[in-house]
């Protein structure tokens, strides 16, 4: 699905990612864990195409194409989805209208017929149930006045509607209480599919109790220092990150 090779990224002249290598196959769920400031969010922003990140070396190949040459919206049309760490509030832009515009832009891109209002509303209602999002949220401004947990649920709801091939969940678990985490995780689990890959970026092993990853990576100091299965996450929880650093330095 996606292959990242020797990726070096700097932000405002400062090198953040120093040679990331990562390959994620179709249907796989990978967790990327790491301490603060290790470059986790930089990686997800670069994949989604945010401005301000300079790729100085390396490549990202997505479905056989050069991802870095694509505009953010084109990435979205091709099935890349970022669930934001801090979803932005956009008062006055209706949640449902945004999604309809997004879904139909992708359909136009694929040469498919746009969904009409009726079909779209049916789709949206169905998906809202998945993350137990109250119907009233559909007609509100994007994230406007939502609580932290509601914003995160709204991200997963959007993911459900947009049906991406590659979903990046950037600290979707941060700031959630157990109930909200359970709802979000249930939503994500329902969206696991053979043709959909998921990258979960997180600080906490807790999330992985609810969404079991196929592969766990440790990102620290701008590099993937270690890769393992879900047991690695448990070990990190117990021992912290320093031993991974020491092991990598040795």
């Amino acid at each position: 699905m996606i292959k990242i090779e020797n990726l070096h990224v700097s932000v405002a002249g400062k090198t953040i990612l120093k040679g990331i290598n990562l390959e994620i196959g179709e249907g796989e769920v990978h967790a990327i864990m790491g301490p603060n400031g290790s470059g986790k969010s930089t990686l997800s922003n670069v994949i989604a195409g945010r401005d301000g990140y300079e790729v100085t070396q390396g490549s990202i190949t997505y479905k056989g194409r050069d991802l870095l040459a694509m505009a953010p919206e084109e990435r979205a049309w091709e099935g890349v989805f970022l669930a934001f760490q801090y979803p932005v509030e956009i008062p006055g832009v209706n949640n449902t209208y945004l999604l309809k515009a997004g879904v139909n832009a992708a359909r136009r891109h694929r040469g498919e017929q746009e969904l009409d209002a009726m079909d779209f509303m049916q789709l949206v209602r169905e998906k809202a149930k998945l993350v137990e999002l109250d119907q009233s949220f559909l007609s509100r401004g994007v994230n406007e006045g939502f609580s932290g947990g509601e914003k995160k649920r709204n991200e997963i709801f959007q993911m459900a509607v947009l049906e991406p091939s590659l979903a990046l969940l950037d600290e979707t678990d941060s700031g959630l209480d157990i109930d909200a985490l359970r709802i979000v995780a249930k939503g994500v689990n329902t969206l696991r599919a053979a043709n959909r890959s998921i990258i979960m970026i997180t600080h906490y092993q807790r999330l992985l109790d609810y969404i079991q990853p196929d592969v766990v990576h440790v990102l620290a100091d701008g590099k993937i220092l270690k890769t393992g299965d879900k047991n690695l996450a448990l070990e990190l929880e117990e021992r912290g990150y320093d031993w991974v650093r020491e092991e990598a330095a040795a």
Binding site: A48, G49, R50, D51, A71, P72, E73, R75, A76, W77, F81, L82, F84, P87, V88, I90, P91, G92, V93, L98, L99, A101, G102, V103, A105, A106, G141, V142, Q158, L162
Partner: peptide
């Protein structure tokens, strides 16, 4: 960026925010 990451073109995203 948020709007574009959901598939809106730059023009559409600008329109939508101006309108809002």
């Amino acid at each position: 960026f948020y709007l574009k990451s959901r598939g809106l073109s730059d023009d559409e995203a600008r329109q939508m925010l101006t309108f809002a």
